[in-house]
Design a protein around this nucleic acid. Structure first.
Length: 221
DNA sequence: ACGAGGATGCTCT
DNA sequence: GAGCATCCTCGTG
């Protein structure tokens, strides 16, 4: 099990997002407990993407980068954790991609738990089955004990990193539009393992918005 | 099965 | 004040 180093993340974001499917996520808790899981779902966010945090930090004409603002750290060193709170409730975990100075990140959306399940259940009080432990980005962070304390820390060494599970057969990867966003909804930048039950249950945003439009039409008729 | 709505804090307008 | 890269519960079919 080789730890994925900075070089792995210092590449185009879409490549990193696809290649992370099938890799293992490892988290070592403060008490030494080792948690691990197979990454089965990711999403890519790039600086040319209206859904990107800090879309607007980059001045397209001059190339100048605003020094402050949300998403600024996505322009930092590749292989760094970018952890933020959404809806005031849930922590979401990304890893920074692309060379320093170029914006990009990959959201970890779902993991198949492999090791440390008892510890995951302890934090995921509502989970009834292994499938419910980390089949969504907020659940994943909670199961693996990931919060804002890990923001801007290396994703290339303990206590948080990914490994290449040498010897495991590569997973078939499918794509769709991303989940839970309102901008950039048509970009097919979600990557997930085909026919894997640990993938999250959310509907891609293009599908969700089409369904909403149909419901509105039905209500008017 | 599915949809509506609430929780809750931070960023940006 | 609005809007979230979400999750959970509680209604109704």
């Amino acid at each position: 099990m080789r730890i994925l180093t900075k070089n792995f993340y210092n590449r185009p974001t879409l490549e990193v997002a696809r290649d992370l499917v099938g890799k293992h996520l490892v988290r070592v808790l403060d008490d030494g407990t080792r948690l691990a899981g197979r990454i089965v779902e990711t999403e890519a966010y790039t600086q040319d993407d209206p859904a990107f945090h800090g879309w607007g930090l980059l001045d397209r004409r001059t190339g100048a980068l605003k020094p402050e603002g949300r998403g600024r750290d996505l322009f930092g060193k590749p292989g760094t954790a970018y952890v933020y709170l959404t809806y005031g409730v849930h922590w979401l975990m990304n890893v920074v991609t692309e060379p320093e100075g170029t914006g990009g990140g990959v959201l970890l959306r779902a993991v198949e738990p492999l090791q440390g399940l008892a510890s995951m259940y302890a934090r995921r009080a509502r989970a009834q089955r292994d499938i419910d432990l980390a089949n969504g980005p907020g659940k994943l962070a909670q199961a693996f004990g990931i919060d804002g304390a890990l923001h801007n820390t290396p994703f290339t060494e303990p206590p948080l990193y990914a490994t290449d599970p040498e010897g495991e057969a590569p997973l078939a990867v499918e794509t769709s539009s991303r989940i839970g966003i309102t901008r950039g909804v048509d970009l097919p930048w979600r990557f997930y393992a085909a026919d894997n039950p640990y993938v999250s249950r959310g509907a891609p945003s293009d599908v969700a918005q089409a369904r909403k439009r149909r419901a509105k039409q039905g209500a008017m008729a």
